[in-house]
């Protein structure tokens, strides 16, 4: 069997059939990039020792169009997304698994780019991918590549973080600029093309979280405002904790470019996706301290206190606007689509 043609070759059905071609794909493409001791066991299930403590597990399916966008691609996104889901429980992420569904005809060169990007993301984050799988679907039955990743982690002793723990009086912190990821994706969508220096904020947040929980172990809630944006995350937290939320528009960091793109397309930055931001709810007394810690970390430089938790039977998220008014910030209805009216 000659080596994979990573320059001009494409994915064929046999690459997913479980035969020689499948194992060639794994040996020549995945293993060299993902390489780690546990993966090298080469078994269908990977065995490892577990440290003491409470364990968390999460799984996340990744579909994104386009697959490559300013600031990242589906590969790095699939690693960051799952690490972040683990981290939002306060846990230290240990290992990842990845399964990739490829469409027949998908260029091997693109696949290699994605694999390298996953490998880099996982290596930088120091969270290895220790098991995986690949399947191939017929042409027309997939959208190039779908990646599903799972992650496990260990919650440090004494940490109890959950979406239902917000208390009236708690303060709400946001780790930085919102809307970068969504705008980066929109800028590269067919038909919408606009040019901007905005890049996806896709990043692994576990190290930031680790410093946060070390300093302030009594953080109540952590969540990454991905799809649906900040507005949706705040509504989720309000509902889970049965509280209201009051935020202040002028405190929410939004880049000028993101504001511009939103005005142009009729969108609201509060509903635009992020892939490297977190929202944190903590007791008022710890907030300043936490803010300092966050601002010292590269991923939290622009962190800000954006509001507080209130008592509210309606569980509304209400925003004081820069203009001086007050308005409800509702859940996202449908999809955020560029509008003309």
């Amino acid at each position: 069997m000659s080596r994979l043609d990573l320059k001009n070759g494409v994915i064929e059905i046999i690459h997913g059939s479980g035969g020689r071609a499948s194992s060639q794909l794994i040996e020549e493409l995945f293993i060299p990039h993902f390489d780690n001791e546990l993966l090298r066991q080469g078994n269908d299930a990977t065995a490892f020792d577990i440290p003491a403590g409470r364990m968390v597990i999460t799984t996340d399916a990744h579909v994104v169009s386009p697959l490559f966008f300013p600031g990242g691609d589906i590969g790095s996104l699939s690693v960051h997304g799952t690490i972040n889901d683990v981290a939002m429980s306060g846990a230290k992420p240990l290992y990842l698994s990845a399964s990739i569904i490829l469409e027949e005809g998908f260029p091997l060169a693109d696949l290699e780019k994605i694999v390298i990007s996953m490998a880099n993301a996982s290596r930088t984050a120091n969270v290895p991918i220790i098991t995986g799988d690949t399947k191939v679907v017929e042409r027309g039955k997939g959208d190039g590549a779908f990646i599903s990743t799972s992650g496990i982690g260990i919650v440090p002793e004494g940490i109890n973080i959950s979406g239902d723990l917000a208390q009236p009086g708690d303060l709400i912190l946001l780790s930085g600029f919102i809307g970068d990821h969504g705008v980066a994706i929109l800028s590269s969508r067919e038909g919408l093309e606009f040019s901007t220096a905005i890049k996806s904020d896709s990043a692994a947040l576990h190290e930031l979280v680790s410093e946060m929980v070390q300093t302030v172990p009594d953080i109540h809630c952590l969540r990454d405002p991905t799809r649906g944006g900040l507005a949706t995350t705040l509504n989720e937290l309000a509902r889970q904790s049965k509280v209201g939320i009051q935020i202040y528009e002028h405190t929410i960091p939004v880049r000028a470019e993101v504001k511009g793109a939103c005005e142009l397309l009729g969108l609201d930055p509060l509903y635009i996706a992020n892939e490297g931001k977190l929202v944190c709810i903590c007791p008022k007394k710890s907030a300043e301290n936490l803010l300092n810690i966050m601002q010292q970390h590269p991923l939290g430089k622009e962190a800000a206190i954006i509001g507080q938790v209130t008592e509210d039977k309606q569980q509304l998220v209400v925003m004081k606007t820069t203009f001086g008014g007050q308005r409800v910030v509702d859940w996202l209805a449908g999809e955020q689509l560029p509008r003309i009216c």
């Binding site: 606009f194 901007t196 000028a256 470019e257 511009g260 793109a261 005005e263 142009l264 003309i340 009216c341």
Partner: peptide, 30 residues
């Protein structure tokens, strides 16, 4: 209907009747 927003013209292509406009460093052909 009528979502319309002021943006600054940065360059013009008279032949194609298009312009690149800039709104907070978002550039778009119109």
């Amino acid at each position: 209907m009528c979502l319309a927003i002021p943006a600054k013209i940065e360059s013009l292509d008279a032949l194609a009747s298009t312009a690149i406009v800039n709104l907070n460093n978002i550039r778009k052909e119109v």
